[in-house]
Design a protein around this nucleic acid. Structure first.
Lengths: 330, 330
DNA sequence: TTGTACGCGTTATCAT
DNA sequence: ATGATAACGCGTACAA
C-alpha cells in the first residue's frame, strides 16, 4: 500500500488539504509548514497518484508519440531527442509503435493531452479534441494541426553555396529520385534549383533506395560521370556513409580528392570514419521545436501553422577546398 | 465533456451501478437490460475512464517495455511483435526509449502492472513490487525475475547438423568474437562445440562489429581460409545480408557454390536478394512467450525461471547440398 | 494560514 | 435483478 497525502497529513499534523497545497507549491501555505510537509513526504517516499490527479484535473500531462515505422531507423535519433526534450518539461511522453490508427485509439484511452505523429503516415484523421502536431512533409494545402518541417530547399542552397565558396564547381547529388517520397523530392529539387541558379551543371545520381549500400553502390555511377565531381552531397546519413566507404576503397581521399557533405544533422556524423560535414536542422533543435509546439498547442490554442525550420551547416572534415588539379579544369 | 456511466444510467432509466455491472458483463444483470444498456452506451459514444477505473481497482492493465538502445535496430522487429502480441490480451503496452533507470521511474509513476526489459541493460535494479521480465542473456546465476532467452547453443547445433546432412564438411562461422557480449559469445561457443562434437574443423571468422558491412567485409577472410568452406553460418540478419551481397559480387552462387544460414528468425529473411534459410527462435514465438510470461507474472506469481526457448530452422533458398566438386575434396 | 467538505468516474459491497 | 452508497487519492472552493 503506497503512501497518500492523508498519511503525510497525519504524520505532519496538518490536514490533507494543506498537504495538497504544499505539494503543489501553492502560495497559500506558510513556508515552514510547507518545508516540513515536503520533508515528511520525502521521508515517507510519497509518490503522487497520477490516476487520482487526472480524475480531478482532467489532464494527464502525457503526450503520445506515434512511430509506426519503427523498422526504418532514420527517425530513431529524432525519437530519442524528443524523449529527452520532454524530460525538461512537466509532460511525459509515451511511445506507440502501432499503426497510426490503433495508436490513436490507444492514446485516446490513455487520455493523453496531445499527440505527435510523423507525417509518413499519410491521410490520418486526427482524433477530435486531442491536440496534434505532425513532423514531416507539409504537402497538404489545408491543415488542421501544426506541422513542423525542415526547409530542405534552403539546406541544399546552403550546402551548394558552401562548396562553391570552397572552389567547387562540379557538385553531384546522390539520393533517391523520381519516387513519390515527397521528402526526398524536396531535397533533389532544392539541389537542382540552386545548381541552376548558380549556373552550374546538375549531376544527379539516383540511388535504388535509402540504405547504406545504395550510397555505396552509387559511387560507381559518380565516378563514371563525364565531369567527375569534386564534391558530393549525400541525401542522408546512411547514403553518405556508404559513399564515404566506397570512396575510401576506391582510393579517393576525403576531402583531399573529393569533398562530401551529408544531409541530416545528427551527432552520429561525428563518428563516421571521417567526421562528416553535414547540413540539416540539428536534430536536437528539431526535437525541441516539436515538443514546444505540441505543448503550446495543448496549453494555448497554437494555430495550424506550418513551421519550416532553418537548417544549419556543421563543419567537420569531409568537405574541404577543391583540389589544385581540378581548379584549372573547371 | 465525455459521457459517463451516470449519463447512460439516466438515459436507460437504471441506476449507474447497474450500468457498471452491465458494462463488465456481470451475470447479475438481466440479459435484456444489459443489451439495452450496451446499446445506449454505444449510441452515446461512451468511453470508459481509465483513471477512475484504475483508482478503484489499483490495476492499470498496462505493461511498460523499456528499449533504451533504440538506435540498434536489431530489436525493432521483436518490439513490433511484442506490441502485436499484446493486442490480443486485455493489456496495453507502452514503450519507453529512456535509460532503464529513467524509464522505470516513469513507468512507476504510470503505475504499470509490469515491465519488460532487454537484458542488454546490465545490472539493473528491478523496481520493488513491480513484476518484471527480461529478455536476453541469462548470465546471472541468481535472478529475481523471469528471463526469456533463446537457446543459442542448440541453434548452432541444429544449423550445423542441417548443413552436415546436406553433405557439408567445411562450415564457417562469421560473427563477433572475443568481446564481452555474452549473446554473441554463446553463439560462437555453440558453433565451436558442435563442430568439435562432429569431428569437423572450426572455421572462425571474426567480424569487427555487428553491422551489414562487417559481414560484407568478412567474406574476404572467408575466401582466404586454407579450406574454403562450402557453407557459412552468419551470426545475425545484418551480418548475413552483408555476406550474401559480397558472395554475389565475387561471383559465388548461393547456394550453388556456397550455402548460407543466418542466425535470427525474422520475416525479413524472406526478402533478401536470395531468401535466407535461417535458424533461431521465430520472433513471433519469442514475443508471445515474453508477453505470456509477464502476464502470468502479474496475475499469478510466476517463478523466477530462466526460459530457454528452442530455435527452429526455417528452410528457404540460401542453403543447399554441397557442390559436386567439393564432395570429393572433403 | 489552515481545515472541511465535495466531486471527479469507477468498482464493489451491501441492501432491497 | 437492481439500486444505494462507500471507497479510491487528489484538487479546490469555501469556511474557519
Amino acid at each position: 500500500m503506497s503512501v497518500t497525502i492523508k498519511d503525510i497529513a497525519k504524520e505532519a499534523n496538518v490536514s490533507y488539504s494543506t498537504v495538497s497545497k504544499a505539494l503543489n507549491s501553492s502560495p497559500l501555505v506558510k513556508e515552514v509548514t510547507k518545508q516540513k510537509i515536503l520533508r515528511v513526504a520525502k521521508e515517507m517516499g510519497y509518490e503522487p497518484n497520477l490516476a487520482a490527479k487526472q480524475l480531478v484535473r482532467k489532464k494527464t500531462e502525457v503526450v503520445g508519440l506515434i512511430w509506426p515505422t519503427i523498422e526504418r531507423i532514420v527517425l530513431a535519433t529524432l525519437v530519442t531527442n524528443i524523449s529527452k526534450a520532454f524530460a525538461s518539461t512537466r509532460y511525459s511522453m509515451i511511445l506507440s509503435v502501432d499503426s497510426t490508427e490503433t495508436a490513436m485509439e490507444s492514446f485516446k484511452k490513455f487520455q493523453v493531452d496531445g499527440m505527435i505523429v510523423f507525417a509518413e503516415s499519410e491521410n490520418m484523421v486526427p482524433e477530435e479534441n486531442i491536440p496534434l502536431v505532425a513532423y514531416g512533409v507539409s504537402g497538404k494545402s489545408e491543415v488542421t494541426y501544426p506541422i513542423i518541417d525542415a526547409n530542405h530547399e534552403q539546406a541544399m542552397d546552403t550546402a551548394v553555396q558552401y562548396l562553391y565558396d570552397l572552389g567547387h564547381r562540379n557538385i553531384a547529388y546522390v539520393g533517391l529520385m523520381n519516387t513519390d517520397d515527397a521528402l526526398q523530392n524536396e531535397k533533389v529539387e532544392g539541389y537542382q534549383k540552386v545548381i541552376q541558379k548558380m549556373g552550374l551543371t546538375e549531376l544527379n545520381i539516383a540511388t535504388n533506395g535509402l540504405d547504406w549500400f545504395d550510397g555505396y553502390l552509387a559511387v560507381d555511377d559518380v565516378l563514371h560521370l563525364d565531369k567527375r565531381p569534386t564534391a558530393i552531397i549525400g541525401s542522408s546519413y546512411d547514403i553518405s556513409s556508404g559513399i564515404l566507404r566506397a570512396l575510401q576503397e576506391k582510393g579517393f581521399g576525403v576531402p583531399d580528392d573529393i569533398s562530401l557533405i551529408s544531409y541530416d544533422n545528427i551527432p552520429q556524423m561525428e563518428t563516421t570514419e571521417i567526421p562528416m560535414t553535414c547540413i540539416g536542422v540539428p536534430v536536437d533543435e528539431l526535437a525541441e521545436e516539436i515538443v514546444q509546439t505540441i505543448i503550446e498547442r495543448i496549453e494555448s490554442e497554437e494555430k495550424n501553422v506550418i513551421k519550416k525550420l532553418n537548417p544549419s551547416l556543421t563543419e567537420r572534415e569531409s568537405a574541404g577546398p577543391v583540389p589544385e588539379e581540378d581548379v584549372t579544369s573547371s
